[in-house]
Design a protein around this nucleic acid. Structure first.
Length: 414
DNA sequence: TCTGGGGTCCTAGGACCC
DNA sequence: TCTGGGGTCCTAGGACCC
């Protein structure tokens, strides 16, 4: 690894920066996107301890001058895409990892644009000039190190780790800057007196593996010596799709569970259908009033993409969970996820409905009929918008804490 | 610090097969 | 009577990331 051609580009406090760009009077002020829940905070707000996921009132208590803004979700998508496109003007080797963050390998384009550090500076300039947004970039020989470099560069900075200086750069830094070290791992390492990446590097890999498990131990030991060459992956598709809904604290009640699961199943299944996919494993998560959560899963013989079937399977799973935890009185969250996703060849729309065995049972609606009904709904929504048609009981449910537009920003390509 | 939503990966145990 | 090994799939839970 004697070249440093990997870039990691990361828009700073992205949603909040977009709001400050759209309304310059917000510049330099502590702002939070959201209302009941903080979806994103500006640096000025973060300085007070405000962060994403925090309840609005708690944020207001921490930061009395905090300004709440509603959120321009379409703008986030548009500007995020535009920033990634600027990377793409330099190289096709771009791996986007979220709406506001991507890796790029510029090894093949230095003859056109100059050394990686020059390219990184050009990218930052273009994002500033064309989009009026701050962006930090790290340049290094590996993805992981480039990512750490961009973190160190924040806000609105550039850090280049020259070949040969990697370990000297890495070792004084705290372990929690490593990808994969969160609160639990940090605490476990700290018990052993390990707080810097250098201290981790000097611990025996066997000891680290005993502490954190084989895979995590091996990986972190490799990272600590910058021996983790991962390739840029330009086409990454998700292996699962899910949706969840926080409920506050509600008494367990069948009708409310039904409605919530319908809505979640609709979100997940329509995404699958839009990509011609279906999944065999259905997992539900139930979080109780005491915030303890339980998952339950089933793998089906046939993949599902029909809303009604997914909803029914999910209801059965949730019922089983509730039977097993009959002491619980309240729910705080329900979630559905579908995995084992596979291509679902487009079914012949003109196939006679009676072909499905299920249809021979009196009163049963066949899987095929359900899929056809879903497709009709999908078409109407494409023409007239998502809210134009849906399950009536669900369409009325407008009191969700997070807007669907915000959820969509986090969805990954299936 | 218990607070939102969409994801990934790992571990461990059990079932089942050869 | 319990002795051996390897592989795959499934489920539940945990940690982590943005």
């Amino acid at each position: 690894m004697d070249t440093a051609t990997i870039l990691h580009a990361d828009l700073d406090a992205f949603y909040a920066s977009v709001e400050q760009k759209l309304d310059p009077s917000l510049k330099g002020k502590p702002i939070a996107v959201g209302g009941g829940v903080v979806l994103a905070a500006s640096y000025e707000a973060k300085a007070f301890g405000v962060h994403g996921g925090m309840p609005g009132r708690q944020a207001r208590a921490l930061c009395p001058g905090l300004i709440f803004v509603g959120g321009h979700f379409d703008e986030y998508q548009r500007l995020g895409d535009a920033a990634i496109r600027i990377l793409g003007d330099f190289t096709p080797l771009v791996e986007r990892i979220s709406i506001d963050e991507a890796f790029a390998d510029v090894a093949g384009c230095t003859h056109l644009f100059g050394p990686p550090a020059v390219i990184a500076a050009a990218i930052r300039r273009r994002v500033r000039d064309e989009l009026a947004l701050p962006i930090s970039v790290g340049v290094a020989s590996t993805k992981h190190l480039a990512k750490i470099a961009s973190q160190v560069a924040k806000p609105d900075g550039l850090v280049v780790v020259e070949p040969g200086t990697e370990v000297a750069f890495l070792h004084p830094l705290p372990v929690e800057l490593m990808w994969g070290v969160g609160p639990a791992t940090r605490a476990r390492l700290a018990e052993r007196g390990i707080t810097t990446i250098g201290e981790l590097a000097k611990s025996s890999p066997a000891a680290v593996a005993r502490l954190l498990g084989r895979a995590a131990g091996d990986r972190l030991s490799a990272l600590a010596w910058n021996r983790d060459p991962r390739a840029i992956r330009t086409r990454v598709t998700a292996h699962s799709a899910g949706a969840q809904s926080a409920l506050g604290r509600r008494r367990i009640e069948a009708r409310m569970i039904r409605r919530t699961l319908r809505h979640l199943a609709d979100r997940v299944a329509s995404r699958l259908r839009a990509k011609g996919k279906a999944g065999r494993t259905v997992t539900v998560r139930v979080r109780f009033g005491d915030l303890r959560s339980v998952t339950h899963a089933v793998t089906l013989a046939q993949p599902v993409a029909a809303t009604a079937i997914l909803a029914t399977v999910a209801e059965d799973l949730v019922r089983a969970v509730l039977r097993k935890h009959s002491g619980q009185r309240e729910l705080s969250l329900l979630a559905i996820a579908v995995s084992h996703i596979e291509e679902q060849p487009v079914v012949q729309l003109d196939l006679p409905l009676g072909l499905d065995d299920e249809a021979h049972r009196p009163g049963a609606r066949s899987g095929m009929a359900r899929l056809l009904a879903d497709r009709a709904v999908d078409r109407i929504r494409r023409r007239f918008g998502r809210g134009s048609v849906g399950y009536a009981s669900v369409a009325l449910d407008a009191q969700r804490s997070v807007p669907d537009a915000f959820r969509e920003l986090a969805e990954r390509q299936l």
